[in-house]
Design a protein around this nucleic acid. Structure first.
Lengths: 371, 371
DNA sequence: CTGTTAGCGCATTCAG
DNA sequence: CTGAATGCGCTAACAG
């Protein structure tokens, strides 16, 4: 490993001069600077970030601590959004997967502190996530996707309440009355907000609320399958269901399939998170899509503004969701009865796919096209 | 930030003693040790990793540099496999996304060097990826998923040749004769090996090879859609297709859908990478599943053995794939003609899902269930 | 067993 | 404008 003093020696200057040339802050005689640059070239010198970080007391790296890496395209798009922002600003980014485990999350946050990162973008695993160590260490934090009580940091979230509410209102408008909801851990604001949107839409429509139709699951596929199976086992079975993330939706669809029920005749389904397979499923799946890429990119923007010295009070950015209406939530056919399976109704509805908003196309294209 | 000297002062000992207690290598008087531990507690002292890293000339962190974060469940499972291994061994892990961009990849490898990471697990973006800077810096490297010419490091890959070959052999056995292949960038060994498996299976079966049926795409959804559209526009259209990753498969299925063709009557399809939606598609999709979690976990194991001092010559671990036979590759119906769409054949085949190997279930369960 | 001392590689005072 | 000297926080020699 070549060090700054080797460069200094070769260029016939002091290490201080080399440092000045490399960081370009102060004025240096052009000729000396040229000699230094030559020496840097010749020796293929790379400054040691660790030493630099120790001296500077900060490291030009961001950490993105995500609570679950397995949320499919949603997660990946968020990451790319953050990364593009970080890259534009010249920051490398480390990604850490807390795997919904508060202990692991804390370990990574401690690591971020110990590594002197410049900033952290975090999807908190729950309300007990503690940001004070980071803040005490002078590290800027942005919360992405999930809020934290007390508004302790800049936050970027999707409009979960409206997203879920729109979906449920659409189901009700299409004639469904026993609308169930499979939601996630109460520790996450995404789950509670989506549940809130669901309940709100029922209330607005004057549809009676039935506690048995609400299931708390774990945002994982198995949990979604189990919750759906329970709902299908109910005396008074639901005729529609909103599932609040894509992995649980996969499980729910499997459970419906195993119960040999048809969508939407026996039960209508709307899933949260858009996925490319949605239109190609046996019954094309209606979804609530989230602006995943923008969520990440906006988080990067907020972090950057903090790193640039902005120190106003915490901001919250809420990004809109989009309802993608497809066959799985098609208008309820008159002849179908709420319970009993109604096998009489034959023939699947055409798999028409209607995007509720043109904005969604632009956003999807951006997220998909990249760069 | 509390430093080691503050701890030393409070405990009434020297910094060296504090260091010894914390690292537990040498013998220290139990009473002093207790005082130190108290002081550490009281001050909530956390060693500064940066300083430690500078002194030790190595940092107890792994870097996982992945070439594409958007490969859906495959990527996520690989990450979790590595991470579990790292975690068990007490190493935190940073994830870096090179996004198939050699420049970005190099930047991350340089960062890994500059950060003194203990080891790197890498999915090379192409054959020109240069490991020598890492090796010169004394950093252990393991290649995961993709090989690099020259066998410069321990490598863990899936058996792509056999995986693709099995799929094509199965298609041929089921009566398909014009089998196409949509493969990825020639820079990746995953793409070239899968293509090789495809060609090999054709040769073994004595089916003539048709250059027009092979398309190079980019492992992305759009690329898969475009390639499929081209294949469908051919005078002599293929009656089956192997698509070598799941994102291109999504695109290919969309293209088939847009062309209003039916699977498998008009064209049979097998995709690479298992996904939870596969059985729920309009025609349940046959897939070649890869042992993604094991790929990651085995990589971690190899890295760990290097960090533990093993210094034999580079090892290559090849993990088996599994063919999951579903309706999309069902035996060709006699009445269907290779070209012309054969609209006469009505009624979809039942969406039966048969797993070709019981091993696949165990592995899938492990990957899905976690921990 | 423990403290003192010396650097890891770098950026930044402070003199010149 | 430049160089010598200092120290970021920590661990490893080396004496005691």
């Amino acid at each position: 490993m070549t060090t700054i003093s080797e460069v200094a020696e070769r260029a016939g200057v002091s290490t201080a001069t080399v440092s000045r040339v490399l960081n370009g802050n102060e004025r240096v005689d052009p000729e000396l600077a040229a000699r230094v640059r030559r020496a840097v070239q010749d020796l293929n010198y790379r400054p040691n970030r660790v030493a630099r970080s120790l001296r500077l007391r900060h490291n030009g790296v961001w950490a993105l601590v995500i609570s679950d890496i397995r949320t499919g395209p949603f997660f990946a798009d968020v990451v790319r959004g953050v990364e593009d922002g970080a890259y534009e600003a010249g920051y490398p980014m480390f990604l850490c997967n807390a795997d919904e485990d508060p202990a692991k999350e804390e370990a990574y946050l401690q690591l971020a502190i110990a590594e002197n990162v410049a900033g952290v973008i975090l999807t908190p695993s729950g309300p007990r996530t503690d940001l004070t160590p980071l803040i005490d260490a002078g590290i800027s934090v942005v919360l992405a996707d999930r809020k934290l009580p007390g508004q302790v940091a800049d936050t970027v979230v999707a409009d979960n309440v409206t997203g879920a509410g729109d979906a449920v209102a659409h189901l009700i408008a299409n004639g469904y009355r026993r609308v169930a909801c499979i939601t996630g851990p109460t520790a996450t604001t995404t789950a509670t907000e989506r549940l809130q949107g669901y309940l709100g839409a029922l209330a607005v429509s004057g549809v009676a609320r039935d506690e048995t139709l609400v299931r708390m699951a774990d945002f994982r596929e198995e949990g979604g399958a189990r919750a759906m199976a329970e709902l299908l086992g109910l005396q008074a079975r639901p005729d529609a269901v909103l599932v609040t993330n894509n992995r649980m939706t996969a499980g729910a669809l499997r459970a419906i399939d195993e119960a040999k029920l048809r969508i939407p005749q026996d039960i209508a389904v709307i899933g949260f998170d858009e996925i490319s397979w949605a239109p190609l499923l046996r019954t094309a799946l209606s979804t609530v899509s989230q602006p995943a890429y923008d969520l990440g990119h906006e988080s990067a923007r907020l972090l950057l503004s903090r790193l640039s010295g902005y120190s106003g009070s915490p901001r919250t950015v809420v990004l809109p969701t989009t309802l993608n209406v497809r066959a799985s939530s098609a208008a309820k056919s008159r002849s179908a009865h709420p319970r009993g399976g109604s096998k009489a109704v034959a023939g699947a509805l055409p798999a028409l796919a209607v995007s509720a908003s043109t904005k969604s196309r632009a956003r999807a294209a951006r997220a998909a096209g990249g760069r």
